[in-house]
Amino acid sequence: MQRVNMIMAESPGLITICLLGYLLSAECTVFLDHENANKILNRPKRYNSGKLEEFVQGNLERECMEEKCSFEEAREVFENTERTTEFWKQYVDGDQCESNPCLNGGSCKDDINSYECWCPFGFEGKNCELDVTCNIKNGRCEQFCKNSADNKVVCSCTEGYRLAENQKSCEPAVPFPCGRVSVSQTSKLTRAETVFPDVDYVNSTEAETILDNITQSTQSFNDFTRVVGGEDAKPGQFPWQVVLNGKVDAFCGGSIVNEKWIVTAAHCVETGVKITVVAGEHNIEETEHTEQKRNVIRIIPHHNYNAAINKYNHDIALLELDEPLVLNSYVTPICIADKEYTNIFLKFGSGYVSGWGRVFHKGRSALVLQYLRVPLVDRATCLRSTKFTIYNNMFCAGFHEGGRDSCQGDSGGPHVTEVEGTSFLTGIISWGEECAMKGKYGIYTKVSRYVNWIKEKTKLT
């Protein structure tokens, strides 16, 4: 034993070699072989497995989906700052455009905790909710729209109204504003409101030439003092309507412009014939205590009207009353817009006519005020429907199939267009061939041609 100890002390290297040989010859039971080890760690190889990531292109799944990435790591994937920024906006807080917040056709661009709407022409605001041009839906104005110097929408209202708090709607500024039905039992019968379409306001006024200088022999019209197929109006439903009495009662109609003036057809009036105007009328054979009678003290036909040349060209006249009318729910003026808007309103496509005229061709006159909704007829169809001249200051309205029309005794009465609950004068009943005849239409004086003249002559002093 002493000898062994001496050998170990003198030859430590020998001992180490012996131990190493023993270990190498022993069977290893701690580690699995290569094949079995792979069965336990069965993990798919990654895209760049075996390579240094710093030297390969980034992978979106590896960089940002398996674990949260930084902007720089995302930049490695896209290799483009702009594309990385677009991805980053949604990656950080989701897609803010998912709810489609942009209105009126706006395009949404996502941002971090926010979004941006790219608005089409005519709109602005956070969600493109603000109209900035009158060309689109009248700028959301209830009545009139004008573009300011910086191309912003400025709404306005006709006389007797003021802008509401929203700067879009119009509200009454006087007790009985024009064009409004205020009798409670008839307010439910107000005709369907007309909503502004998209309009090209630059070209809204037709490029028409008034044929002022045409000389033409007097034409022989049949029954051209021209509501057939209409309905009984309720008291106060058309408070701007008046009836004219002269040699015979209810020979023509008219509309209240203001307390002192009536507008009617020029062919209705004769110099030297006494005319009485009755406002607030409903049943011409009954006294309903809503009527107001006034005498006409002055007749002003349009300066281009000449019955000797043509009885229905420039067929418009103004009547001055001896005493002002007292405005109330049964006696209310009709609204008159400017030339541009009167023309736009007419193009809405349908209007209402009213009167006490004959209820059928050569038949009896109506006792109760009649009204009828009539569609506008395109000019080409209008011209083809008659052998008589249709001037540019006239328009056609009615039904091709016949059966409904204005008729004798309705002449001078109103053709009105309702705009968001307020009625505007767009025409004056003038003439036609018979009444409600198939293929024939009622012919009306186009008020847009005469609004400046009306307003100039009827100013209240």
Rank of each mutant, 00 (worst) to 15 (best):
A9I: 09
I17E: 02
G21F: 14
L23D: 03
L24P: 03
S25V: 14
E35S: 10
N36K: 11
N38T: 14
N38Y: 14
R46M: 13
R46S: 14
R46P: 15
F55M: 15
G58E: 04
L60H: 15
S70T: 09
E72N: 15
R75S: 09
V77G: 15
E79N: 15
T85N: 07
E86L: 15
V92T: 08
G94T: 12
D95Y: 05
E98G: 08
L103G: 05
N104S: 03
C108Y: 02
I112D: 06
E116R: 04
W118C: 14
F121Y: 12
G122D: 07
G122K: 03
C134P: 02
C141E: 00
F144C: 00
S148Y: 06
C155I: 01
S156D: 09
G160I: 00
E165F: 09
A173K: 10
P175L: 09
G179F: 02
R180G: 03
S182H: 09
S184G: 07
T190N: 06
E193F: 07
E193C: 05
T194N: 06
V195A: 14
V199I: 10
D200P: 12
D200G: 13
N203V: 07
E208K: 10
E208V: 09
D212F: 10
T215G: 11
F221C: 06
T225I: 11
V228S: 11
E231F: 07
K234F: 14
Q237I: 08
P239A: 03
V242T: 03
V243N: 04
L244F: 05
N245T: 10
K247P: 11
G253W: 08
G254Y: 00
S255R: 00
S255C: 08
I256G: 00
E259T: 06
W261F: 08
T271M: 11
V273W: 11
V278H: 05
A279V: 03
H282N: 12
N283S: 08
I284E: 05
E288T: 07
H289P: 12
N295V: 08
I300E: 05
H302Y: 06
H303Y: 12
Y305Q: 02
Y312M: 10
D315E: 02
A317V: 04
L318D: 00
L318P: 00
L321Q: 01
L321S: 01
E323Q: 13
L325N: 00
L327K: 04
N328I: 00
S329M: 10
Y330P: 01
T332C: 06
I334N: 00
I334A: 03
C335T: 01
T342P: 01
F348L: 07
F348R: 09
G349R: 06
W356Q: 04
V359R: 13
F360W: 13
R364Y: 08
V368G: 11
L369Y: 11
V374C: 03
V374F: 02
C382A: 02
R384M: 10
T386C: 07
T386E: 07
F388A: 05
Y391T: 13
N393M: 03
H400M: 13
G409R: 12
P414T: 08
T422D: 00
C435N: 04
I443S: 03
Y450I: 02
Y450D: 02
E456R: 12
K457Y: 13
T458I: 07
K459L: 08
L460Y: 14
